[in-house]
């Protein structure tokens, strides 16, 4: 059992997501940085789909009721156990009764706490991921608060204290600002110049960037990027409106400003989505802090598939190394 003493700014139980329900309007939720989430799990002997705690900017304070094996990956929040600093990206043994505390994130926006056995809240539609907008999954469908008690599952027998990863596996969150996108579905609505502006602008991550959408600011009038046309029947009157369509996860919705739709986002609607962030780069974007800037780089579908394949290969190799 994990006892939450302070919830932190926004801490939720997350996993690899709730799949297969997009057609009924249910987004997948799950850890927005799957890279850090999965490596944290592998370090403590869990499979990728075990639930971790996703901690945003400021982590929770929590107490362990039993001995545990934990790992913290992602944004650097300087975790400490009973006041003693502990390593990140490393499996750490915890004694029953010890308290884990975090500082504010200095690089990156989100850290993941994995516990051997996984956070064992009840599954909803085959996932433990929290979807706070409708209050399902995770712990009572909400962010954690003082007094919450989270069950922990049965650890794998051979999970080892001290397991760690090479330094080159650990991202440098401050330096990565290129987000690769496949243009479409509605980029035909942009003028050539509009496309150049979208790809040539340094977009600033707004204060309202969250698990639903990363809102991006710049001194750009979005309507000016679009071809003029007589709006078709069924589309709204704004030039950025189209006849309703499904929104790919990671798509860039042009709703007054570009909004990259994240894992808790609406699944469809009538705004033009002009590009889709390749899946590994959604994790990079999710580590982007408010006021940092990002630039979009256009890649082909083939390049996107190669990027995803090498991401999968890297994680498979780490899983093999850590879980055997």
């Amino acid at each position: 059992m994990l006892r939450i003493k302070e919830g932190g700014l926004s801490t939720t139980v997350q996993d690899t997501g709730r799949f297969g329900n997009y057609h009924i309007g249910m987004p997948p939720s799950g850890a927005v940085d799957q890279y850090a989430h999965r490596i944290a799990n592998f370090l403590v002997g869990n499979e990728a789909d075990a639930a971790t705690l996703e901690m945003t900017y400021s982590g929770p304070t929590l107490e362990f009721e039993e001995d545990a094996l934990i790992a913290v990956c992602g944004a650097d929040m300087s975790p400490s156990l009973d006041g003693e600093a502990v390593s990140t990206w490393t499996a750490i043994g915890v004694d029953a009764g010890q308290s884990l505390e975090f500082q504010f994130a200095t690089e990156g926006a989100r850290a993941y706490l994995a516990v051997a056995g996984g956070v064992d809240v009840e599954q909803v539609m085959e996932s433990r991921a929290t979807y706070t907008l409708i209050g399902i999954g995770g712990y009572e469908g909400r962010t954690l608060e003082a007094g919450d008690e989270l069950p922990v599952g049965e650890p794998a027998a051979d999970a080892q204290e001290g397991a760690t990863v090479d330094d080159d596996v650990v991202p440098d969150y401050g330096s990565e600002d290129t987000i690769r996108v496949v243009m479409g579905l509605c980029d035909y609505r942009l003028t050539d110049e509009g496309r150049d502006v979208l790809l040539g602008t340094q977009w600033k991550i707004s204060d309202e960037a969250d698990r639903v959408g990363y809102r991006l600011d710049a001194d750009v009038d979005i309507q000016d990027l679009f071809e003029e046309r007589e709006q078709p029947f069924g589309a709204g009157t704004d030039p950025t409106n189209v006849v309703d369509l499904g929104y790919p996860i990671g798509s860039i919705q042009m709703a007054g400003q570009p909004i990259v739709l994240m894992r808790d986002a609406v699944t469809g609607g009538g705004y033009a989505t002009v590009g889709t962030v390749v899946s590994p780069d959604r994790g990079t974007l999710a580590q982007g802090r408010s006021h940092e800037t990002v630039t979009f780089e256009s890649v082909s579908v083939d390049e996107a598939l190669t990027i995803r394949e090498s991401w999968n290969d890297q994680l498979d190799a780490l899983r093999e190394e850590l879980l055997g």
Binding site: L9, T56, Y57, S58, A109, D207, E208, D210, S290
Partner: peptide, 8 residues
């Protein structure tokens, strides 16, 4: 401090 629709 308001960030990501949460308040610290």
């Amino acid at each position: 401090i308001g960030v990501m629709k949460s308040f610290h």
